[in-house]
Nucleic acid binder design. Structure first.
Lengths: 223, 223
DNA sequence: TAATGTGAACGCCTTCACAGCA
DNA sequence: TGCTGTGAAGGCGTTCACATTA
């Protein structure tokens, strides 16, 4: 997880709570039912019912005592909280296997997130299309990013390319990064004048090597 | 992140500490130098020096007071702690774009993790090779998994396929899962007789939608 | 002197327990 | 009666501060 630079909003909401909201949303959308109790929602998502209630209560009183939560409305509320009632404009960088998989996945499953551009320096790739979006060269990167009002960047590029690219993008106004390159992006000595930049790192190596630890530990700790 | 079923080992080590070890390892391997202080290692990884010292101290006294840590030896120690001094045998499921990207990445960057098998039901794919490993059909899945002594499974399969597959694999002795499918794997009513299963979920939707929240919040909270 | 190793303080998040309300 | 909403308690991890040792 990247730096979280959450400003002093009304009451401080735990990052952990925010990370659970998408799970609730998914469960609510899958469950076509009318009403759901916190216990039911907990069952579906793997969290405790208290956890569910506390998370939701940070944002308002959406439930009815003795009854539960209205599924449809709660889904809308969560979408609103996450900012998914307005389309999130994302640009993808890197049209390799990973980038292609990501573009297709997002296009197939996220109405609320739109990949407005795909960038790749390889001339063999530029001009082609992935999931309906053209692959573009990096000439006039900044111009395109500003023109398309790209809010977040998904980085599926080689390790060495990630940081310089991210710096350019941050300077061009990109506010969020989903980084798949195995590097700690240290972006800005950055500003407290401009809006903060959020970075989420997804690092396969960390997951794999951590998994190795747990698998191995359990082996030894055989009771 | 999945359930963590850590047994009562000697002293309890925070999961968070373990998740930082790979970052230290990466920094140590990149830095060819002789010695490193906790401050230097912190600088390279983005963590505080106290954090670095505390994390390492859970496992032993690897440093020299007044001097720092020996880079080479510390790297070996961390590899040992993570269990990366023995090869981790992994099987990949799903030979689509995501699976292909994962297989190539692991083969290119991890000496310590070996993908010993790639499974995909598509007859067009079986028989081909990805990063030197043949793509196999799912006939005799259990037999192959046991024969190859697969310790962890990487799931790059469609949502619906993930859970039934994971159940079969867990039954066949797979102990760790890296799940890229957007589902909460609820594996076992599982055993307390057998060894525990560790699940790490990597969920693009959660990351994207959480990112949407932070980007949006900052927009509103403009000072 | 310089940097590690570590008890103690702190803060954040989760869990508990129950008051409040349909 | 049943389930939500929430203050209080508890637990876990990070930060602080310093004693320790090459």
């Amino acid at each position: 997880m990247g730096k979280d630079t959450v400003p002093r909003t009304a009451r401080r909401i735990p990052d952990a709570s925010i990370r659970r909201l998408p799970a609730y949303l998914r469960a609510l959308e899958a469950e076509a039912g009318q009403r759901l109790t916190s216990a039911a929602l907990g069952e579906l998502t793997g969290f405790s019912s208290e956890q569910v209630r506390k998370d939701l209560a940070y944002f308002g009183a959406f439930g009815t005592r003795g009854v539960g939560y209205p599924a449809q409305d709660l889904a809308s509320e969560i979408r609103h909280i996450l900012g998914l009632d307005r389309e999130l404009k994302a640009a993808l960088f890197g049209a390799g296997h990973l980038g292609t998989a990501l573009a297709r996945y997002v296009a197939a499953t996220h109405r609320d997130v739109r990949i407005v551009a795909i960038f790749d320096p390889d001339p063999e790739k530029t001009g082609s299309e992935i999931a309906g979006t053209a692959v573009t060269s990096l000439v006039d990167l900044e111009g395109e990013v500003e023109r398309l009002r790209v809010a977040v960047a998904i980085l599926a590029v080689p390790e060495a390319a990630a940081e310089p690219l991210a710096r350019r993008l941050a300077a061009a106004g990109v506010r969020g990064f989903l980084n798949f390159a195995p590097v700690m992006l240290s972006l800005p000595p950055a500003a407290d004048d401009g809006p903060p930049v959020t970075i989420h790192n997804i690092d396969l190596s960390i997951e794999l090597q951590t998994l190795a630890y747990f698998v191995q530990v359990h082996e030894t700790a055989r009771v």
